[in-house]
Write a protein that binds this DNA or RNA. Structure first.
Lengths: 117, 117
DNA sequence: CTGATCAGTAACCAGGTGGTTACCTGATGA
DNA sequence: TCATCAGGTAACCACCTGGTTACTGATCAG
């Protein structure tokens, strides 16, 4: 599943928001949602396929974490639609894009400090 | 259909890209694609529902145009995922966001000058 | 060792999506 | 006027998606 389709589902958007705060286990993610745990598992698998999350097995637990760089294609696409005909915007977009890539390359899953989710 | 789901389909992404260049008729949009015209019509209806395009009837033709501000929720959401924990990025995102809104409010569908689509 | 817990998989089901063809309406222009 | 063209709608179909329950397999704690 591609990242666009991954974002199409509200449950998956919730999951990503939650993971934007900090890596979490499936149970943690599941009990904020009105659906069963297996359903959450399925969504997480799709998100992993889409390159938006990674899993780290830790004992019997599995910790899922957001992969921000997975969003790059989406950002790029949306930006490409938004920008056109206003040159002013481009530098902002450029800065954003650069930042996105840098985040991906250098910071993997380092020190999530806050979680407004 | 919400904008997220609207972006999930590759055909619809193509349509939006095409419309990012200039408003176009259904036939114009259809013959760049490997699907039937009614299928394109359906997609356009969904895009309109999602607030991503508008139609202007002109004689027997209907001209579809991109509505950039319809993408605002998507931009905002993706940004909210991307930003966290790197303060440097925020000003760029902020600039982007401001620009998006400004574009929506002030420029509606003014003077599409290019169309790399 | 054993019971409880975390979590993935399997099997199944309902409903939505994306595509098609066929048809209809309304505008155009020779 | 009338054939033609733009384009929406209807009916239909195959497939995917998202959900469920039931089961299985590890791992942890007592």
């Amino acid at each position: 599943m591609d990242p666009y389709a991954a974002l199409a589902d509200p449950v998956r958007r919730s999951l990503l928001r939650a993971l934007a705060g900090r890596p979490q286990r499936v149970v943690d993610l599941a009990d904020g949602l009105p659906i069963s745990r297996p359903a959450v598992s399925k969504h997480l698998r799709l998100l992993a396929e889409a390159g938006l999350v990674t899993v780290e097995a830790r004992g019997r637990e599995r910790h899922y974490a957001l992969v921000r760089e997975g969003l790059a294609p989406v950002t790029a696409y949306v930006d490409s639609l938004v920008v056109r005909t206003q040159p002013l915007t481009e530098h902002a977009l450029d800065a954003l894009d650069t930042e996105v890539r840098r985040t991906g390359r250098e910071r993997r899953q380092t020190t999530p400090t806050e979680e407004t989710a």
